[in-house]
Design a binder for these strands. Structure first.
Lengths: 171, 171
DNA sequence: TTGCACTTTCAATGAATATTGAAAAGAAAT
DNA sequence: ATTTCTTTTCAATATTCATTGAAAGTGCAA
């Protein structure tokens, strides 16, 4: 069976990761930078990223900043070095948790807020259209609230027997 | 407290839903059409969608087709009517399940395949770079495999006490 | 078998998003 | 306080992605 060289495999990983990222509504470059940081054993500089991914200074800067905002990449000071270095936390479980938390905060919570405002509308409760509308909004809210609970549990906002069982089963 | 008129609320819902969709890597229009179908008590035609969302015939056609491909919208025959009509399944739990299944199939499975191919690379196992790479790939695979299991359970591919408990807790 | 009602396709266009790079700002070192 | 190295910003540009609409396709019905 064919074995790739490391550089080839890295490139493959970075490219695929970028492609999957876009499917999830994540900037391709941001995903690629994250992938690069994941497979880099030591902290690297913006310059390194520029070279290895052939992208511009500004682009690297903005996306690294974004990754830091997501809480999955850190700035690192290396004594004696002038340039900033960056690392990705290599604990994948922790990173996933962090990403889930972040997406929940940025997307699920605002959605539930929006739905709350549409809770009840003017007009005849017997009207098919009114009925259908309120029904759907209510159901989506329920679904969203459940999702929220599950995610909070999974990301350890509350720790309990259920979470523990779940983690033991799947980690 | 202010109550919206139905049409206003519908519009609000459709627009917001479209915006949230894009964040999830889903075509804005597709998300909007789905929202419209959700709040419509009866099956509607492509023409109806065109008018209500002010979008072109081709756009409606392609996106409805896509929604059908996701298994959350159905073509409906209304006897006496020439035009095709469409409905969204109003069971939100079922729809969510269906979307999760579909995304898993389209995204998670291919990702795991990709990772499998990068499992082992040429070169010295003691090299920091080789080590880090194989380590990360292995960890992501593990994480992905766990996610796969959880999702399969949640979407009822296997039914067991755990799923039942989960469903009872959150549905 | 021709016309009609409707659906589908897809090249052209438009809109949204990402990327560049040069200029400004910031931060050590001399 | 000036030079030098580094980071950040952002208007201009390039790229990607979504939308249009006219033409081709389908199939029913007279």
């Amino acid at each position: 069976m064919y074995k790739m060289k490391l550089t080839e495999a890295k490139q493959q990983f970075i490219n695929s990761w970028g492609a999957f990222g876009t499917q999830w509504g994540i900037n391709r470059t941001m995903a690629q930078i994250y992938a690069l940081l994941l497979v880099s054993p030591d902290p690297i500089t913006q310059e390194d990223v520029m070279e290895q991914l052939s992208i511009s200074r500004g682009n690297v800067n903005m996306n690294i900043r974004e990754l830091i905002g997501w809480g999955i990449v850190e700035r690192v000071i290396i004594s004696g070095e002038r340039k900033e270095h960056f690392v990705a936390d290599k604990d994948i479980w922790k990173a996933s948790t962090q990403i889930i938390k972040e997406r929940k905060k940025r997307e699920l919570d605002p959605m539930l807020k929006m739905l709350a405002q549409l809770e009840d509308v003017e007009g005849d409760k017997k009207d098919r259209h009114v009925k259908q509308f309120t029904e759907v909004i209510k159901d989506i809210r329920k679904m969203g609230a459940s999702a929220e609970k599950v995610l909070d549990m999974m990301t350890g906002i509350e720790g309990n027997f259920f979470t523990d069982a779940l983690i033991k089963m799947f980690k």
